[in-house]
Design a protein around this nucleic acid. Sequence first.
DNA 1: AGCTAACCGAGACGGTACGTCTAGTCTTGCG
DNA 2: CGCAAGACTAGACGTACCGTCTCGGTTAGCT
Lengths: 204, 204, 204, 204
Amino acid sequence: MVESETAAVKRASIGAKRNPASQNAILDAAEAILNEEGLAGFSIEAVARRARAGKPTIYRWWPTKTALLLDVYQRFKNTRPFPDTGSLEGDLKAFLNNQLIGFWQDRLCGTVFRSIIAEAQGDDDAAQALFAYERGRRKFAEQIIERAKARGEVSAEFNGAVVIELLAGFAWHRLLTGRLNNSDEDIDAVVAMIMAAAKNGLRS
Amino acid sequence: MVESETAAVKRASIGAKRNPASQNAILDAAEAILNEEGLAGFSIEAVARRARAGKPTIYRWWPTKTALLLDVYQRFKNTRPFPDTGSLEGDLKAFLNNQLIGFWQDRLCGTVFRSIIAEAQGDDDAAQALFAYERGRRKFAEQIIERAKARGEVSAEFNGAVVIELLAGFAWHRLLTGRLNNSDEDIDAVVAMIMAAAKNGLRS
Amino acid sequence: MVESETAAVKRASIGAKRNPASQNAILDAAEAILNEEGLAGFSIEAVARRARAGKPTIYRWWPTKTALLLDVYQRFKNTRPFPDTGSLEGDLKAFLNNQLIGFWQDRLCGTVFRSIIAEAQGDDDAAQALFAYERGRRKFAEQIIERAKARGEVSAEFNGAVVIELLAGFAWHRLLTGRLNNSDEDIDAVVAMIMAAAKNGLRS
Amino acid sequence: MVESETAAVKRASIGAKRNPASQNAILDAAEAILNEEGLAGFSIEAVARRARAGKPTIYRWWPTKTALLLDVYQRFKNTRPFPDTGSLEGDLKAFLNNQLIGFWQDRLCGTVFRSIIAEAQGDDDAAQALFAYERGRRKFAEQIIERAKARGEVSAEFNGAVVIELLAGFAWHRLLTGRLNNSDEDIDAVVAMIMAAAKNGLRS
DNA sequence: AGCTAACCGAGACGGTACGTCTAGTCTTGCG
DNA sequence: CGCAAGACTAGACGTACCGTCTCGGTTAGCT
């Protein structure tokens, strides 16, 4: 993904339209800087230097630093499955492992997402972008509970939204406190807790 | 607490020891800026300007921006009770309401804590300080579960650490996604979920 | 001359040859910008924007900003007479009034020429163009002295080149120090000074 | 004067007051850049780089590029005499040689002054500064004529202001057309012209 | 009682990054 | 092939903070 991080190639305009080579070089550079120096060293200036791009080229396509971060994050998505494992327990574990904790452990996904969350705490635009994205992800994940209800695994009153947010919150907390690794056992514990609550058939 | 935010008074040295008036003026200014302009406008320079203090005076006592943020946060603490309500359910609700969500809704506590978390994502020192603080808070909160075990409300195998982290994660997630308000019903749902799991007597 | 400064008309290519409409639109825009915003606001970018022309179109025909300026200046020329008034005094006054100070007071001529001189101080190409132009003008003006010698108004040893340069220098100085206006009386004084020197019949 | 152009020394603050070492390093660097690269290469950025100074340090003390140029120019002044030679002819030659043409030929004085004139053509503040300076210089030089009148060399009606401006204009013209050198003979011719006019006793 | 050490406000210092502007080059697609 | 359009690299613009430093002054506490 970061194949051209020291791209010494000369990259001119390709006419009156966006040059995908530049776009990729910028995203590559952004990713590489986050990887090597973390959020603290991540500046538009540094990205431009590394990508051998002009600053205006970056500002033309990404209005804010966070927009660039979000784009870097988007490049990682779509690869991991979000399967119907046939059981609530399996689905919840897959959710944590494939979409949250496990996903963030892969490459820079976690680093980038941490940066986005941090950025959103001080910048309103970033906040709106992140919140919209996150709300969508949660809504999507609530299908897990709908499937479980269809299967009869949980009662219709079971509060799916809260379950999903509990899992997401747990994962965010692990991410933001630098404790993603060695979470396997705790993931099992969390899911077991949810399953226990589900078996009691309560409305939440 | 912010009684002297426009302190026009002249505040000289009081000799070879720390001047508490300066210390307070700086913390007041920091708080006021966070209140009025948010994390984005929060800079040492701005705090010094507003507090009519010299920058070195700030750097002498707070090595980093985050240290100052942590101090601002500390000023809010200690007031809210952390009672033994006599039941696990009561204790958990009190934990969320008095120590987490409810507490953060009060004045600037939430804003400041959000800022600290954000800062910690890019600054290692800040991260260590926050993580140590947070770990301590969780350990302390686990007493809730110990008390419940002593009462016989939950089995000895109940995974208290995970429960506390689920609640903390839920609260962080609400804080960081700007959804602290209108959480009362969801707090009840979360606690009900935990109680349901506890009643099943599982190891977690 | 500035008839199409807001040229909203669509101006396409007229095939494989230079489009005079574009050329004029560019010169018009350049002139208008100099008029309204002065040399400081005069950029190729601004000219292209105003003329609704592509930057390459400008660069194709004018290699430098100064070349464009010189072209704008040239459009003003040729209209004023450079007559043989029959006397040295009349010729000198006509020179100052028609070719220098009086000419520069007309419309933007002075503004444009000031800009060219300024440009020439930092750009070698511009300097060469300006100097060649100016040298030619002086040589031409020296005919005034030749005519006076033919008439017997001054001796053959009279240093015509220095006289012309004195007048040119005086005019440049007025132009560059923003004092073109109210020069009439001073023009008379300058010419009287030259006439007095001439009458003494000295070699200069 | 440019003794520390590659000043590798570390130059910290000397407290809450202007550091003359920085000031000198900046002026040295500005001078060196003008010398080596001319006005075209003269940017605040380049000066800061060469002086190993921060850009804000330059902007703190010199609001515009021209202000810096003027300061560089001022460092050259005051050394050359402006003597009373006892005769109008001698005074005029000394004026041209010591204060104008001859002075500008020395080191970078001419280059710097050319740059100032150029800058003044596009920047109003620069123009005001230059015009005020220049007006003062001319007023001062008019003492030459006053002295000649006191000596009885010229009549009381002799127009001193115009004479001084003729000389200044001649010198500016030589400077701005890159023809300072080999002016000695022409200086003599110019002065002879003025002397001839003076002898005729005309009012100008 | 005098000296010293640490404090205080102030603000300059060398830097880095910001977001905007222009320079000059390039390519596309229409006419 | 000329044209409008607009992308590209490059780098200067002027501003805001960063964290460090020295200044000149003040006062507490030790000698």
